[in-house]
Each structure stands twice: as C-alpha cells, then as structure tokens.
C-alpha cells in the first residue's frame, strides 16, 4: 500500500505539472514543472524524502527503459536526416565537447577563487 501511495504522489505531482504546462504560457515541459514542485514540496518538508524514496529510486534506476519507444521513432525520421548524418554527428560532438570544456573550466575557475578567498581569511 505504501508503494501505491508513493506512486500516486509521483503521478499526482506529474498531473499538476501537466495542468501548469497547459495553463501557463511558458515553453516548459510538464515534467520540469513537476520536478520543481516536488523539489519545493521536499524543501518545505510537506513531503518527506522517506515518503517517496523507494519508488522514485526504483523509477530512476530503470529510467532508460522509458526512452526506448521515442528513440525507436528515429525509424520514421531517418528519411529527414538521410545524407546529413555526418554533419549531424559532427555538430552533436563538437557542441558536446564545447559544453564539457566551458562548464568544466568555468566551474574550476570559481572553485579555485573560493579556495583562495578562504585561505586568505585563515
């Protein structure tokens, strides 16, 4: 029964996310609204981690399964990328490497700045 309640809570938050997605004019998916709502519920202790941990942990652990169907959809859109596969791969890889380097170096810069400040305080 406990698991059913956890699942109902997760579905309930998802539903509120869907309602917000339909009502609010922002291009934010229902899932992200739901994520933020659950995060706020946890921060305000309205929902306790223990009340949701088992089922949410299980769902996160099997997450890739939920992506299978939309990914197989490549079948139907392959015609559209036909002949552009190389460009697509290149674009995806270079942009990936850019995020990795920019985010990593920027974060490192600020972390080291913080460390220097703390050392000076000492």
């Amino acid at each position: 029964m406990n698991y059913i309640f956890q699942l109902a809570l997760i579905f309930g938050v998802s539903f509120v996310g869907e309602v917000l997605n339909a009502l609010l004019p922002f291009p934010i998916p229902a899932s992200v609204y739901g994520l933020i709502i659950l995060f706020l519920l946890l921060c305000t202790k309205i929902v306790k981690v223990e009340q949701i941990e088992t089922v949410s942990g299980f769902m996160i652990s099997i997450m890739p399964i939920f992506f299978i169907e939309p990914t197989v959809g490549i079948m139907n859109s392959y015609g559209l990328v036909k002949g552009k596969v190389a460009a697509l791969f290149l674009a995806a890889f270079i942009s990936f490497a850019a995020v990795l380097a920019v985010t990593g170096l920027t974060a490192q810069f600020f972390i080291r700045l913080n460390k220097k400040k703390e050392e000076r305080k000492k």
Partner: peptide, 21 residues
C-alpha cells in the same frame, strides 16, 4: 510500447529527490 514512455514525465519528477539530497 507507448505505455512505457508514459512514464517519462513521472521519472523526471523523481529527479527532484537526488537534487534535494
């Protein structure tokens, strides 16, 4: 198979738990 992808929204909602931790 579409019934599996119906879980995409709830599983994303679940990511709030590790974030909170």
């Amino acid at each position: 198979a579409k019934y599996l992808s119906y879980f995409l929204t709830p599983v994303t909602v679940c990511l709030a738990v590790p974030l909170y931790k």
